[in-house]
């Protein structure tokens, strides 16, 4: 029976974590939260539910007129726990940069 399963990759167990955050520990990460808040801070800890511990957190405030735009202002939040259910995206800050439109000569996908 066990031999049968050796030739194919195992199915994902339901709790499989597809993201290994341990290599980003003590690194700066950018996190988008549901509702639109955008924060940046040093990743201090995490769990499989993606609850995060972040330190030296700064929130990038949004434009009160157009909440989809950033105002350029910041707010210091310090040490915080971000609840996994409200974490939308996580991205390491290293290498993250604003660029020119890369799709001018290319269709999307």
């Amino acid at each position: 029976m066990s031999q049968k399963h050796q030739d194919k990759p195992r199915k994902n167990p339901p709790h499989k974590v597809i993201l290994d955050l341990s290599k980003h520990i003590n690194k700066n990460v950018q996190v988008h939260l549901t509702g639109g808040r955008q924060i940046q801070g040093v990743l201090k800890g995490w769990d499989p539910l993606l609850n995060l511990v972040l330190d030296e957190v700064v929130e990038q405030l949004r434009d009160p007129v157009d909440p989809y735009k950033l105002s350029g202002k910041q707010r210091k939040l310090g040490l915080l726990v971000a609840r996994g259910t409200s974490v939308m995206t996580i991205a390491p800050v290293d290498g993250l940069e604003q660029i020119e439109n890369p799709f001018l000569n290319k269709p999307l996908v």
Partner: peptide
């Protein structure tokens, strides 16, 4: 959202429900 700003993001995790 408005299609005017672009960022390069080397690595990214997205929660499925968003």
């Amino acid at each position: 959202r408005d299609g005017n700003d672009f960022w390069h993001v080397p690595q990214l995790y997205i929660r499925g429900n968003t």
